[in-house]
Design a protein around this nucleic acid. Structure first.
Length: 323
RNA sequence: GGGGAGGUGGCGGAGCGGUCAAUCGCAGCAGACUGUAAAUCUGCCGCCCUAGUGGCUACGGAGGUUCGAACCCUCCCCUCCCCA
C-alpha cells in the first residue's frame, strides 16, 4: 500500500484547524501546517495559530520554523513538508496537511521545477530596472530571451517577470524549459485531500467574528512587541494579511475601526482567491460546512473510512502514544 | 430670514456644449498563478441582447435655448456652510 497523506484545505476561517485536530485524534495523525505565514515565529494571533495548549498533544509541524527576517518559500515548504511526511510515516502515523496556501499545497503535491532559488543580487538589479524604466521594461527584456514565458506573464506582473528573468540569467535556459523536470517530492504517496467550503455570507460572518477576537486577544500588542524586539517593518510576514493592515494603523494610515473593517474585507477577498485556487486543484473532496461541526467531521470520517485511509494508524498501533 | 457652496453610476469624485454610458479611485464580480503566494497580476463593472464602431434609459425634478446639453437659461425640490 502506498503511504497515505491526508490534507485539509479550504478558505480562511472555514474550520480547517478544528477538523485537522479531530482527524488527527481519531486516526493517529500528526499535523503539518500548510499555511505560508504560520511558519514564522512570533506571528501568532494574526495567523490564527492553534495555541500549544489547544493542540491536544498532537504534534504540529512547520509552525514557528522560520525567523521573521527569513524568507520562507514554497520550495522550502515542499522540502520541509516532504521530510516531515517521511518522518511521520516512519513513526507509523498519518500525516495531515492543514492549511489554506494553495501554492504551497501544489508545490508539495505536484512539485516545483528543480531550478535555482532566488538570486538577491540579480533581483536587486532587475528591480532597479523596473524602478527606473518601468516594469514593462522587464517584460520587453523577457520577450527577447524567453518569449514563451513572456506570453504567459502579464507585462506588469513584476514578481513573475523578475523570477522568469532570474531563471533565464542564472541557468541560460528559459523558465518553461525547466518545467518538464517538475516532480513532486511526495510522488510516492497517495494524497487524500479534503476541502471545506462555506457560503460566502457565512465566511464573511466568521471572518468578522475572528477579527474581533484577534483584536481582543491583542493583535496590536503582538505587532508592537515584534517591532520592539527589533523585527524590521519590512519583514516578510508583516506584508501579510492582518499584519499589513495593523502596521498601517500604527503608522496612522487609518483608525482602529477602519482597520478592523479593512481586515474583514481583505479576508473575504483572500477567501475568494483561495477558492479560485482550490477549485482548480484536481481531486479535492469537497465538504460543505465548517470544520468544527461534528456532522461535518462525521461525514469526513465516513469518507475516510470508506477509503481506508486510517489504516496506517491501525496497522501500527504499537507506537501510538497511549492508545 | 439674509449670504454662499453644491446635487453625476453602490460609494468617493472628475467632467462644464459635440468624439460621454460618462476620466479616476474604492467597493463588487470573474480569472491567472512552477522558489516573495496572507504575495503579485489581469479582465468586467447603467440596463438589454445575437456582446457589437449593437439597442435602450441616464448626470436631483420640470421646462427652455441649441443641429446637438451632465455641461447654458428659468422655475421647483433637496443638502451643506456662514450671518441672523
Amino acid at each position: 500500500m502506498r503511504p497515505r497523506v491526508l490534507a485539509v484545505l479550504g478558505p480562511t476561517a472555514s474550520g480547517k484547524s478544528a477538523l485537522g485536530l479531530a482527524l488527527a485524534g481519531r486516526y493517529g495523525g500528526e499535523i503539518i501546517n500548510c499555511d505560508s505565514t504560520a511558519v514564522y515565529r512570533g506571528f501568532d494571533i494574526g495567523t490564527d495559530k492553534v495555541p500549544v495548549e489547544a493542540r491536544l498533544g498532537i504534534p504540529h509541524h512547520l509552525i514557528d520554523v522560520a525567523d521573521p527576517t527569513d524568507v520562507y518559500t514554497a520550495a522550502q515548504f515542499a522540502r520541509d513538508a516532504a521530510a516531515a511526511i517521511r518522518a511521520i510515516h516512519g513513526r507509523g502515523r498519518l500525516p495531515i496537511l492543514v492549511g489554506g496556501t494553495g501554492f504551497y499545497y501544489r508545490a508539495l503535491t505536484r512539485g516545483l521545477f528543480p531550478g535555482p532559488g532566488a538570486d538577491d543580487v540579480l533581483r536587486a538589479r532587475l528591480d532597479s530596472i523596473a524602478e527606473r524604466r518601468g516594469v514593462e521594461r522587464l517584460h520587453a527584456l523577457l520577450q527577447r530571451v524567453d518569449s514563451r514565458s513572456a506570453a504567459r506573464i502579464m507585462p506588469r506582473d513584476r514578481k513573475r517577470l523578475v523570477r522568469a528573468l532570474e531563471v533565464y540569467f542564472t541557468t541560460g535556459r528559459p523558465l518553461t524549459d525547466h518545467f518538464a523536470q517538475t516532480t513532486s517530492p511526495i510522488a510516492d504517496c497517495d494524497v487524500i485531500a479534503i476541502a471545506l467550503r462555506l457560503p460566502a455570507a457565512e465566511t464573511a460572518a466568521r471572518v468578522a467574528r475572528r477579527v474581533d477576537d484577534q483584536f481582543a486577544r491583542g493583535i496590536v500588542d503582538e505587532v508592537r512587541g515584534l517591532l520592539e524586539r527589533g523585527v524590521p517593518a519590512i519583514a516578510r510576514p508583516f506584508g501579510g494579511l492582518v499584519y499589513r493592515q495593523v502596521m498601517e494603523m500604527l503608522r496612522g494610515v487609518r483608525d482602529e475601526a477602519a482597520t478592523r473593517a479593512l481586515i474583514v474585507q481583505e479576508n473575504r477577498r483572500y477567501a475568494r482567491r483561495q477558492l479560485i485556487w482550490f477549485r482548480k486543484e484536481p481531486n479535492l473532496i469537497w465538504f460543505d460546512g465548517a470544520g468544527e461541526r461534528k456532522d461535518v467531521q462525521a461525514r469526513v470520517e465516513g469518507m475516510i473510512e470508506a477509503r481506508n485511509v486510517g489504516e496506517i494508524a491501525r496497522e501500527t498501533p504499537a507506537d501510538g502514544p497511549g492508545i
